[in-house]
Design a protein around this nucleic acid. Structure first.
Lengths: 244, 244
DNA sequence: TTACGGACTTGACTCAGATCAAGAGGTGAC
DNA sequence: GTCACCTCTTGATCTGAGTCAAGTCCGTAA
């Protein structure tokens, strides 16, 4: 049975669970390692497990009959997937694929489905996770419909900037550029050209390192609901922010 | 206090709940009527209620600073909204707007949040609803990224066809054409031209009435996970379906 | 050391869908 | 009735992202 390293941050899935509840979940779960490019599940398969990434990265995508691919999510360590698909009932609408060697904890669907009815805290955790995905999906939708490539990349940078803590004026892209391009719904070429435009706007791009002149550079990619994530959105200095 | 007409179909939100549990929810809820175009909630507002449509239609959308709009969902009677937003924590990422006079049941957020921890069946209902929305969002994303306008409209028709029961070769569009166009991520002009192409493919379009020659007409817009919704997907006749 | 391959960039060209503009058809107010 | 207004359609034009092709810059293997 897998047991969580004490020093590691608990994934959101297990947040606030009693030791007993956690044990029940882990009892029937096991680790598995996947190689670069390996498929964990394919569109149309009936899902058997929820996948919790211990180490590495995954992507979820949909493939059209002609072999074209739309990336839905890019996931890092601590992220979960297939949890939503379980409750949809029916086959998986997505592919899940490892990007590089990735270690994953597999939690059987039955364990999840019974545990949801036993531990309300666990089901609320799941609700929170699914709703966050849903929120991201909504952002992705409006991005593709109404935003220019520059705005899409800018918003992506903004989110990464907020995630990496407000004070650092530098962060690095967590995935390969072509993956990010696909996630943002554009070709690698367009992504590359867009990065060039970003440079003209005062954002240094050097390989996968992104540096900003100051912490307001990305402000005009913000919107009212993302502003809530910003540490200073209710402070005076936010005046500089074009939203106000 | 609002009480559900016995003859009306129960919305998914309340499915399988005990009479007592349902009463608790309805006790603090109330009806409200909204006029055409009226906003129930705006992007950036803190949500106070979950909205259950009793009669009429709503749309949820995101608006860019320049006033351009991306439609996220179009909802009919029995649908719920803002339930996902409640669990995201933080302000609403979407606008909700009435399309025509619409009667809505308002369930206060606190009632929902406490009830989730008390009635596991209720929280599973919520999970199912949110995951369905999430699934739709994923379809919307890949549709916009990898499908042509004809494929998007075809898939939309397919879903409506499956919803309206398999046997009827006719259904009508539940929303104004421009709303559907926006939902599908295209302009009204493109939608109109696309409908013309559909006619050439053997789908009669007359105002908002859609008629098909036979029930296989829409088959080639199907995909592996949507096929599960099809009543005959595991029967012999599905041979005709290009998927096989 | 060179050779190969993969990730990314850059430039030239193409085209599907957006935009702009005009017209058809329907409906309600007066 | 007809005027105003709205939805939808149709046609002509424009444009921006995709495509294709070539080239650069790595890292790795022989």
């Amino acid at each position: 049975m897998y047991s969580f390293p004490k020093n590691k941050k608990k994934p959101q899935l297990f947040e606030g669970l009693s030791e007993e509840s956690l044990q029940t979940l882990l009892q029937h779960s096991f680790l598995k390692e996947f190689e670069n490019g390996q498929l964990l599940i394919q569109q149309g398969d009936i899902p058997q497990f929820v996948y919790l990434i211990i180490d590495g990265t995954l992507k979820t995508s949909r493939m059209s009959a002609e072999g074209e691919e739309a990336t839905i999510r890019l996931l890092e360590s601590g992220d979960v997937c297939m949890e939503a698909v379980l409750f949809m009932g029916g086959p998986s609408p997505i592919d899940v694929q490892a990007m590089g060697t990735t270690t994953v904890l597999l939690i059987p669907d039955k364990v999840i489905k019974t545990h949801v009815l036993e531990d309300a805290r666990f089901s609320v955790n799941l609700l929170k996770i699914v709703t966050r995905h849903y929120k991201n999906a909504m952002h992705q939708i409006d991005a593709m419909q109404i935003k220019s490539p520059v705005q899409r990349v800018g918003y992506y940078f903004l989110i990464k900037h907020l995630e990496s803590g407000h004070d650092s004026l530098e962060f690095s892209l967590p995935f390969r550029k072509q993956s990010i391009a696909s996630y943002l719904g554009m070709t690698p070429e367009t992504f590359s050209r867009t990065l060039k435009k970003m440079k003209e706007m005062g954002i240094e791009v050097e390989d996968d390192k992104i540096k900003m002149r100051d912490s307001f550079t990305l402000c005009h990619f913000c919107d009212s609901d993302t502003a809530a994530l910003c540490a200073r959105h209710d402070r005076e200095e936010c005046q500089q922010c074009p939203l106000h």
